[in-house]
């Protein structure tokens, strides 16, 4: 029933779209924000931007910093490319996009080095790798090149949040099970640990790279079990 209603709404939106004015947060625009969170998640469905998602999720704090950096680069990159979309010659568009993204990332890198130097050291090459983070190039190619500025901005924000929540979820489990802390604060009580006569010990395995892959695999499993239309043939 709800689906039918939604379809009707969508159809109405399509009609509305032909008229010159469209509210800033119309149904269609809100879909741009919501879709990447679940149905069209950049990591678990579109398979974009895996590299950084896995490498910097040992702890929550770097993952948060990374998410914010990506949010900034995505939103700004989408807006800039969308502004230039009518002037970019098709043949060299990839180079143009790369240069736009690379300048934004250089900016982010300098800011991180200035204000959160420790995290910037921890993220090492992965800040630079935002440039080739497929999420950004993918959205630029697939969306910003063909849509208006405001819609591209929303798409950028939506996808960055979709990316961020997976990143934070993976980091949450890895930090909690791997070092017993969250954002650096100890969660597991001291008395539980084996050293203090308890029964618990951290699973150091969670800190190693392969477990990031397996954690994402399990998140995909849970997500698709709940959202059956995502299941692949």
């Amino acid at each position: 029933m709800a689906d039918v209603l939604e379809k009707k709404e969508e159809a109405k939106d399509l009609l509305v779209d032909k008229q010159p004015k469209e509210p800033l947060f119309s149904k269609k625009n809100r879909k741009l924000l919501n879709d990447p969170l679940n149905d069209n998640n950049p990591i678990t469905v579109q398979v974009l931007g895996i590299c950084s998602a896995l490498a910097i999720t040992v702890k929550l704090y770097p993952a948060l910093v990374m998410s914010i950096s990506v949010l900034f680069v995505m939103a700004a990159g989408n807006v800039i490319v969308s502004l230039m979309r009518n002037f970019i010659p098709n043949r060299i568009r990839i180079i143009v996009q790369l240069v736009v993204v690379a300048s934004l990332v250089a900016l982010v890198d300098q800011v991180l080095k200035a204000f959160v130097y420790d995290v910037s050291k921890e993220l090492s090459v992965f800040v630079g790798l935002i440039i080739t983070n497929c999420i950004i190039m993918g959205r630029l190619e697939a969306f910003a090149l063909g849509n208006s500025v405001w819609r591209s901005f929303l798409d950028g924000i939506g996808n960055a949040f979709g990316y961020a929540w997976i990143l934070l979820a993976v980091a949450f489990f890895r930090e909690l099970l791997g070092s017993g802390t969250l954002f650096g604060f100890q969660i597991i009580p001291d008395a539980w640990y084996l050293a203090n006569g308890g029964f618990y010990s951290n699973n150091g395995f969670m800190l190693l790279p392969p477990m990031a892959l397996i954690t994402v695999g399990i998140i995909i499993w849970v997500q698709r079990a709940r959202n059956t239309k995502l299941i692949e043939e």
């Binding site: 392969p210 892959l213 995909i220 995502l230 043939e233």
Partner: peptide, 14 residues
């Protein structure tokens, strides 16, 4: 079924 495709590839890579 929910693991088919992407999910199992992640786990195998792990």
């Amino acid at each position: 079924a929910p693991l088919k495709g992407l999910g199992i590839t992640f786990i195998v890579t792990g």
